[in-house]
Write a protein that binds this DNA or RNA. Sequence first.
DNA 1: TTGCATATGTGCAACTGCTACACCTTTTAA
DNA 2: TTAAAAGGTGTAGCAGTTGCACATATGCAA
Lengths: 192, 192
Amino acid sequence: MQETAGRRERKKAATRQALADAALRLFLDRGFDAVGVREIADAADVATTTLFKYFPTKESLVFDEDAGRAEALAAAVRDRAPGTSVVDALRALVEHDVVRRHTDPDMAGFRRLLDETPALRDYRRGMWLRHEASLAAAVAADAGLPPDDPRCAALAHFVLDSPDFISAAPDPVRALDGVFALLDRGWSTLAG
Amino acid sequence: MQETAGRRERKKAATRQALADAALRLFLDRGFDAVGVREIADAADVATTTLFKYFPTKESLVFDEDAGRAEALAAAVRDRAPGTSVVDALRALVEHDVVRRHTDPDMAGFRRLLDETPALRDYRRGMWLRHEASLAAAVAADAGLPPDDPRCAALAHFVLDSPDFISAAPDPVRALDGVFALLDRGWSTLAG
DNA sequence: TTGCATATGTGCAACTGCTACACCTTTTAA
DNA sequence: TTAAAAGGTGTAGCAGTTGCACATATGCAA
């Protein structure tokens, strides 16, 4: 594994990181809406147009790449421990990604930022839902159903929609329980 | 019931209608993104600033008021026929509002507009979800559960999220079946 | 090393949704 | 009749985003 894959690659990565770092720092300081993209570009010492060559929107500056999430979802379904239901496996994944952030004190600032910025929550929901089709297919394959089975599609949609709902709830842990109680019982009487 | 409730009211209503009509006509003609708000205001013969006194956003030009939807949801839960489950009653309401549009040929243009404009679908989803809390409370009251029961909140959320998912699906009728099969079985084993 | 094609970055100007402001006109009500 | 209140106007401007023409840096080949 080459660490230094050419100066060009390294500079690109550095620029990208500088932008993301500057943006997050400014957002945490003063709030998402109070910081303009021109200011972020300035802080990272690049032109505004350059910023948009790295990040398609202002919101995307806040989130890491989600490379691997599609695979993580498929793996959660495929490689789950024997005796674990699909819904339980997905619950564990959501719990890991969402609820942990609500108890980790290092994420407090980040969490507050998300809480007070609907645009960011919407963006994150979209990132989850990008994998709706592939999760539906994985669930269908696991259950031995046709890949376009509508109940699998519905389950996949609700699971991927849930992180947003859960972290916006007053008590996220209880919300997680509620969501997966409903889905688990619904799914088990369909598939089991 | 006064038909003519003062010249002022009538003029306001006429301006509002002129804006909505002009907007829908232009959108259907050329697509949502290809029409600017300045052009819509021009077509309705008002200033751009006036347009935004009637409609808070460009998207809102497309949709009627949703006055009464909150009440319709509460009524669907409260006044349902004996022997009908809460989920079935809500299914009927969603079916009426969503699936009918998919079979009515008069709505074909409107439907295409929605299909090709994610911003409009998101806006409509938001309109449904505005009643999430009140629906959750109605469901909880009906089931004799505390008003903040997380399973009721989850059910309400998924029901109100579903119209968007359903009408975006390749086969909306099958999607409707899938969604409500899942929710119905999940809910009945919790509440029944 | 030199030279060149290409990837990357720059600055400017513009467009789009949306808002603030100061002003004018119509309607309502005393 | 008059004055307040409501509605509408036009201008100017902001913020996110993009297109364009030009500059620079890099990787590769000779």
